[in-house]
Amino acid sequence: MSALLEIRGLEVVFDGFRALGGVDLTVEQGELRFLIGPNGAGKTTLIDVVTGLTRPASGTVRFAGTELGGLREHKIVRLGIGRTFQTSVVFEELTVVENLDLAAGFRRPLPTLLRQRRGVSDTVAAALDTIGLGDLADRPAGVLSHGQRQWLEIGMLIAQKPRLLLLDEPVAGMSRDERDRTGELLTEIARDHTVVVVEHDMEFLRRYASQVTVLHEGKVLVEGDVATVQADPRVQEVYLGRTKKEAA
């Protein structure tokens, strides 16, 4: 059986700058994969290509056997790939429940959208429960804190019922407590979803990651379990050394 996500020889060029220079990546069904690498390594670009936001110069992306090249964003979502953004975007004028309901609703035929929402669907209730924003269900998303917005985004992602989740730095800018909760949330989600997480934070990685892919200057540097990756001298040079210095 083939992998859920297969990326082969992916190249992305921005105005002559090679943001990705031939990336291969395979993600199996049910995996929780961490994608790390210093700033500018091309992590976000990789997610952008998979989700149709950026067109690659060459290379292929196959999802569950389907070639994604040239598909528009919403079509890719409909195939079952969901993502979050580095800076969370929720709909501030809509309530938390409305945000989730919208995310859960794209499979509904258009005419049924003309009806008013009555109550909360099971999918939305489950997502609300998972992200723990039940108390704020009917508040506009605009009042949420930064961390809560990230959770709402993750909740919207779950409500979409995707087969593959791509999370771009979900804990960036979060407090310690919020990070812990997000980590638990991730672990929970990963139980029954295939998840790729872009993360910068080494401590977070040590605690929650198993399989890690390190990206550096648009190329895959190392791939393996956390211990192997951490022990690799090249990784320490390009990534860990730098974060240690930054942290100091």
Partner: peptide, 10 residues
């Protein structure tokens, strides 16, 4: 309020 975000909701 977020046309580009809506695409990623399918």
């Amino acid at each position: 309020d977020g046309e580009d975000r809506v695409r990623f909701l399918g």
